[in-house]
Computed example of a mutant assay.
Amino acid sequence: MQEVSDNDFMATHRVSLATLEIESSLVEINCDSAWMGPGLTVIKAKEDAAYTIWDGGYFVMTEL
């Protein structure tokens, strides 16, 4: 797990946190290096929501 600033996120992912409707200037990112497929990266958006990246698209996941 790592915390990334909005500027660093933009430099790496070419999209801003605001575009993903993340209101914080820092975001928590988890990567599972043992898995090589969809869901490898999880970007925490809120307490009950996160994004994952797959084939260049950002997919929101929410807790039900």
Rank of each mutant, 00 (worst) to 15 (best):
V15P: 01
V42S: 14
V60P: 04
T12M: 07
W54Y: 13
M61R: 07
D48Y: 01
L64M: 06
F59R: 02
L26G: 05
A11L: 11
N7V: 12
E21R: 15
E21F: 03
A45N: 02
K44C: 04
D48E: 08
T62A: 06
Y58I: 00
I29M: 09
D55C: 05
Y51T: 04
G37H: 05
A11D: 13
P38L: 03
V42K: 13
K46A: 07
V42Q: 14
M36K: 07
W35Y: 14
A50Y: 07
W35A: 10
A50L: 02
K46H: 12
E23V: 01
S24F: 03
G57S: 14
D32K: 08
G39Y: 06
K46P: 02
P38F: 05
T52P: 01
T62K: 10
W35L: 15
S25F: 05
T62W: 04
I29V: 12
G39Q: 10
L40R: 15
L20M: 06
V42N: 13
I29Q: 03
A49M: 01
E21C: 04
A45V: 04
I43G: 10
T19W: 02
N7W: 02
L20P: 03
S25R: 14
R14H: 15
A11K: 15
Y58P: 00
L20H: 06
L26T: 14
E28A: 08
V15Q: 06
Y51M: 00
T12D: 01
G57L: 03
D32H: 09
S33L: 11
K44I: 07
N30M: 04
E21T: 12
D32N: 15
S16R: 04
R14W: 03
L20R: 06
L20Q: 06
N7C: 06
G57Y: 00
S25L: 10
I22M: 08
E47A: 12
L64C: 07
D55F: 00
L64H: 08
M36Y: 06
S16N: 09
F59M: 11
T41M: 13
G37N: 12
G39T: 08
F9L: 01
E23N: 15
A50C: 12
L40E: 15
F59C: 07
G57Q: 13
I22N: 12
L20I: 07
D8K: 12
Y51A: 01
H13C: 05
I22W: 05
V15F: 00
W54E: 11
N30V: 01
D32Q: 10
A11R: 13
T62G: 02
A11T: 00
L17M: 10
W35H: 15
M36F: 11
E23K: 13
T52M: 12
D48C: 03
V42M: 12
N7S: 14
M61V: 09
V27N: 02
D32R: 10
W35E: 11
E63D: 08
T12I: 12
Y58F: 15
C31A: 13
D32Y: 05
L20C: 05
G56V: 01
A34P: 02
M10C: 01
W35D: 04
S33G: 09
A18C: 07
E47L: 07
